[in-house]
Design a protein around this nucleic acid. Structure first.
Lengths: 253, 253
DNA sequence: CTTGACCTTTACGCAACGTAAAGGTCTATC
DNA sequence: GATAGACCTTTACGTTGCGTAAAGGTCAAG
């Protein structure tokens, strides 16, 4: 069976222009040219075109496709593996972008000015939730809690940079707590700066901020001895002072 | 603080050309032009550039960025949501592609245990490889593409005979599809013969057979319009019928 | 006053085609 | 056998977001 450009085009789902272009760059030349200069494609070309379209579907560039099908010394498997790695990188980038867009939208809707890093954290939490909702039980049954928890940790795992920034901020807070504590006044500028920084610190791991939650946490610092111990380690009475500063900051005291 | 193009470029991590381009298309114009015609950017422009770069990172086109930042009536949240949907589609496509590449690679690998003829071809192949590397272009010039293409087919693991047999089998499959389709039953003997022949046909090009890969390909026949067109050309609904027959054949339906 | 680092505009190049435009060819019908 | 309409040809500009010369003006320092 022989075909003219547009016949072949219609058959294969590409445009005539595409076939002419492939001819032009030497990727797929017609089997012969008839007396009127028409391109005539035969069975061989049809098959080759299918191969070409297969690779094109895989987002291989025409240049690389040319190499794959024209040069016997070229290793198609290796080429595909390279390409595979590129695709994975591309998807990783895309995932990151999608996450950012999503959090950007939700922060736009919430009308809050969000920390870039906070946006990331928020998305991860939601991811974990969705993941758990959809596959949690199944995976838990199949692979055990260990696996699920590990994956959650991973999802939750912030970027190295975020983690470092958060840790650093946590240290700053302790230093600031010591300085503010000597003022003895939860309303002092230092104490209020402390409270603000504490909120900022929280935002690394919280997806949604509510005054009540912040206040509740502050109370917990005093009520729960584990927290108390953590802040009192730096300054005796530190937990209590921090709570008071936060309550003032929130306009609750 | 004021900056010339390249100062701002260095500060923001883009190229000077990029800034000139943004000026050209009206996306970001310098605050003023000095007496020598130099572009001078102020703080306002720096901030705007940062906004622009933020959106650019999210793969928003410059045209859309322009809309977002220039038109007060334009709803950025809606715009981002549209964009978000596009991104998700893009990722879905990418996932499909990656999956296909994976199965293709694994089917390409898997050793050369398949066809005896292919093993033989393996020897010749190495010969051809060395030959091509040294004399490839010369041969192409002297004997034409025909010769080289013939050897390519060998590289792909097929002898001329295999190639013809495969083509013939491919045609048989189309005929059989038509016949089987009229039974209307993917479980019918004819349909199952069809599926078996399809597997046989696959084995010409696959080095390793896996049910999952076969099933995946069957799904692709329906999902990918090019394949669908190919099989539907013979019988309307042919691709779908073939897929069902294969799934039954594989015990997956 | 020259040198070299900066700035300017103009313009071609990239990937993979889409889309005219201007013109030749085939086929069917009057 | 003329003519319309469908199909083919080549040429060439447009698309996106710049990179990369090329040809030339400007500025600060030695």
């Amino acid at each position: 069976m022989e075909y003219t450009v547009n016949k072949l085009a219609q058959m294969s789902g590409v445009s005539g222009r595409t076939l002419r272009y492939y001819d032009q760059i030497g990727l797929l030349k017609p089997g012969r040219i008839n007396s009127s200069g028409y391109r005539i494609y035969g069975q061989k070309e049809v098959d080759l075109l299918q191969q070409i379209l297969f690779y094109r579907e895989l987002e291989v560039s025409l240049e690389d496709i040319m190499k794959i099908i024209n040069q016997p010394s070229f290793n198609p498997t290796l080429a595909l593996k390279d390409h595979y790695n590129e695709l994975k990188k591309k998807r990783a980038r895309l995932d990151k972008i999608i996450a950012t867009v999503e959090t950007t939208i939700s922060s736009m809707e919430g009308g809050r000015t969000m920390h870039d890093k906070e946006k990331f954290a928020g998305f991860k939490e939601r991811l974990i939730d969705e993941n758990e909702q959809n596959y949690g039980n199944e995976i838990r049954e199949k692979y055990g809690d260990e696996t699920v928890d590990a994956s959650n940790r991973k999802l939750r795992g912030m970027s190295q940079g975020d983690y470092e920034a958060m840790t650093k901020l946590g240290e700053e807070i302790l230093v600031l707590l010591k300085k503010a504590y000597v003022t003895g006044d939860p309303k002092s500028d230092l104490a209020q700066e402390l409270a603000a920084k504490h909120k900022e610190w929280l935002m690394y791991s919280w997806t949604k901020y509510a005054k009540e939650a912040h206040a509740g946490l502050a109370e917990m610092y005093v009520a729960d001895e584990r927290f108390t111990a953590y802040y009192d380690k730096k300054v005796k009475g530190g937990a209590e002072f921090l709570r008071d500063a936060i309550l003032v900051y929130l306009g609750m005291k």
